[in-house]
């Protein structure tokens, strides 16, 4: 039971990160391998705001999310759109965007190493006991989960209840047909990419309240997020949330039952299962 609750609490934050990636990959068609760096950068900014100005990470979100939105929008428009325009087919775009975002990954990592050093960082925020079903949990984890759920719910209402959101979903299904019905595909892709970056940054901020991180950890989160996205089906919001919760629980079980050093193996085990039995994802439909 404790494992289940801890896993779900962790999974909530993972879901936010994976939702960010699924928007970037599913809608903007860019496999953003620098996603984890956005997350870690957000964590560092939250850390800096909290330790230097005593700004609570929850208020920090109000600063971090818009900044991440702007930065990711700029990255998409200036750096990635030229690649989209020059690519002759999806395969070429994939290779180009993978290489370009590798570049961003190392660039951001290097800049963070310069500004914050390579040491592990954490800060104490809401480290109080909070009891669920008779067992104590960190209040910061519970708060992070609730905040993640709130942000996730607003994303859902944006995607399913507004015109803009419907356009985003249409582009995810088929960019060409969306263009035919008068959707600004290029603008929507930029919006989705920027929104994805902002969501990831929110995930990073929330994660930093209870997690110890350092400048070179981004890749690990990118892998986790990618695997969640594939498990849930690319571009699928429900799938990403469910897969994130599954991954959170699987990781927590391995960490507490076997060894904390083996969490990545849990991730890979799930990945292999998905590849073997359901490569299109939990809710994904078979490609024709």
């Amino acid at each position: 039971m404790e494992i289940l609750v801890t896993g779900i609490l962790l999974g909530g934050t993972y879901a936010l990160i994976a939702l960010g990636l699924t928007l970037q990959y599913g809608v903007a068609r860019i496999m953003n391998l620098a996603n984890g760096e956005t997350l870690v950068a957000a964590g560092f900014i939250a850390f800096w705001l909290f330790t230097s100005y005593q700004v609570s990470p929850l208020w920090g979100l109000l600063v971090i999310a818009p900044v991440a939105f702007a930065v990711n929008w700029a990255i998409y428009v200036w750096l990635l759109r030229p690649l989209v325009d020059r690519a002759k087919n999806q395969g070429m775009l994939e290779v180009d965007s993978i290489l370009a975002t590798f570049g961003l990954l190392f660039l951001f990592q290097g800049l963070m190493l310069r500004s914050f050093g390579g040491a592990y960082v954490s800060y104490t925020f809401l480290a109080e006991r909070f009891t669920i079903f008779g067992s104590p949990y960190g209040l910061n984890r519970v708060v992070a989960f609730l905040a993640a759920a709130l942000i996730g719910a607003s994303l859902w209402s944006f995607l399913y209840l507004t015109r803009r959101g419907t356009a985003v979903r249409a582009v995810a299904v088929n960019p060409h047909s969306s263009n035919l019905v008068g959707i600004d595909v290029a603008g929507t892709a930029a919006l989705a990419f920027a929104l994805g970056g902002a969501l990831t940054a929110c995930g990073g901020t929330l994660l930093s309240t209870f997690y110890t991180f350092n400048a070179s950890m981004g890749v690990l989160f990118t892998i986790k997020a990618l695997i969640i996205v594939i498990m849930g089906g690319v571009g699928d919001v429900r799938g990403a949330v469910l897969a994130a919760l599954i991954l959170g629980v699987a990781e927590t079980s391995v960490a507490s039952l076997v060894d904390p050093g083996l969490t990545l193996s849990a991730t890979y085990a799930l990945f292999i299962l998905v590849l073997l039995f359901r490569p299109q994802g939990i809710f994904g439909r078979q490609q024709t």
Partner: peptide, 28 residues
């Protein structure tokens, strides 16, 4: 065998964390 039967993206993602995975297993 696990990845090359499907699309190339899965292959990249799988190999991205492979070294870290093997390192964890060897250390453990």
């Amino acid at each position: 065998a696990a990845t090359l039967r499907i699309s190339g993206v899965y292959f990249v993602i799988f190999t991205l964390g492979l070294a870290e995975l093997i390192r964890q297993i060897v250390s453990w």
